[in-house]
Amino acid sequence: MIGTAEGLARAYAKRWLWKAAAPVAVPVFGVLTLLLIPLAVLAAPDASTSVASSACSIGGTGASVAGTELDSVQMGHAQTIVTVAAAQGLDPYAATVALATAYQESRIRMLANDGSSPELTAEQAAVTATSLTYPHDGLGSDHDSVNTFQQRWIAGWGSVAQLMDPVYAAEAFYRRLVEVPNWQVIPLTQAAQAVQVSAYGSAYARWEPLASELTTMLWPAAQATAADASGAVAGVCPDLPVPAGSWIRSTAGTVTSGYGPRGGTWHAGTDIAGPRDGPVYAAADGTAVRAECTSAYCDRDGSLSLAGYGNLVELDHGGGVTTRYAHLSAYTVTAGQRVSAGTLIGFQGSTGNSTGVHLHFEVRLDGASVDPVPWLTSRGVDLHAASAG
């Protein structure tokens, strides 16, 4: 899908709330995961391990809002919801309605669904359960409902894949909200209920104070994001501890497209698909020679009709070896900056000539592309190894 939320990664990283907090204020479990599992040698996870968006993201920093404690994952999703509203030209009340709805439905968490509801047919259950394959913060089992808003694919909200994208989920909510007559002036609980058609329609009003305060906190950064199309952000994920001179796997995810001919053209790299805004790290020591938008726009998702890499970082490792990291939602380095293997350089996105969230990774020798898979294999890195999200 082509998101309309402009630069969600920038909103996360620039949000004024974070600036008073240390960059390491991400979920403790996520930090430990990254410290203990270098992406250079990713082992296959246990089958029962869910992919958690809290592993390390640009989600946010926990806060107390209207007497309610929200952790970094909840704050990250809240910022997404508010930023999408601002990007679509809606007013703060729209964001307040959405936040109250999300808190009532999921406590502002991206919930997957195991399809165990007895209301589903076997086929519907199987489709619903595919939500488990996408980044999520927990499980629900209410019919076929998924995500922060508990939207239902059977009810026409979108495909499971779309609904498990936080940006799409917020966009879908606002599409229906603006169709509600007089939504800007009717009570919040009526506006929310008109969108959700919930069996507990009066419950949304309980969370209006929380949602209103959250909107006030997050709206300035959302507005700034809508006004600033730059792809550069400050890094908030910790760098990986990597021995000097090592090569590593740059990001978590699954290889979805390899090096070589593809659709009548030459695919000069390897695509690794992981969570939207998943961290991307320098594959080896080097110097950033490019960190820029290379397409007509990079403030939102691109498409096959758009030329260029989108947000691109290129690193020079010396000896004629360079690497490229493309389609980033945002980048955290500047041209001329020296980086070490494991330095955070950006976040997975879908900018430029792209139709889905992933990292396009290239290795070049004296300017000519080479297959990244054997190159990294010879340096002890298996791009095809299963990876933890």
Rank of each mutant, 00 (worst) to 15 (best):
L344C: 10
V51M: 05
N182G: 13
N147D: 14
A98F: 01
G89Q: 12
D285R: 04
P372Y: 05
G367W: 03
R15C: 09
S329T: 02
A192T: 05
C56A: 10
H317S: 14
M1E: 06
G319S: 04
P241T: 13
A9F: 01
T61N: 07
V97M: 13
K19L: 13
T61H: 05
E6Y: 10
Q196C: 11
V233S: 09
D46G: 13
W153P: 07
G342L: 14
P118T: 12
A232H: 15
T377P: 00
T256A: 10
A21R: 12
L177G: 11
L120D: 07
R364S: 13
D144A: 14
T270N: 08
P261L: 02
G138D: 07
V280C: 15
T189M: 07
S212F: 07
I186Y: 09
T355K: 04
T334E: 14
L163S: 06
M75S: 01
V180F: 13
A11I: 02
V84Q: 00
A52K: 13
Q150I: 10
E105A: 01
S64P: 00
S64H: 06
R176P: 01
G140F: 12
P241N: 10
L90E: 10
V51Y: 13
T351M: 03
P374A: 08
P209R: 13
V381W: 08
A229L: 08
A122T: 12
P38K: 05
W157C: 02
I154R: 12
T49W: 02
T80G: 07
I58C: 12
A191S: 15
V51T: 06
A326F: 05
L210M: 05
S106T: 09
G380S: 02
V73K: 06
G89C: 10
S131V: 09
S131W: 04
G59M: 11
A169E: 03
G7F: 01
G342T: 09
P118G: 13
L39R: 05
R290F: 13
A244V: 06
S387H: 01
L218P: 03
E179T: 09
L32D: 07
A98K: 04
A283D: 02
S202P: 00
W183H: 15
G245E: 05
V31N: 04
A63N: 09
A129T: 03
A291Y: 10
P209L: 11
C298Q: 02
G253W: 14
A296P: 01
G356S: 11
A13V: 05
T332P: 01
S250A: 14
D71Q: 02
Q190G: 00
S305E: 11
A227Y: 03
V84Y: 00
G201L: 06
G274Y: 08
G308H: 02
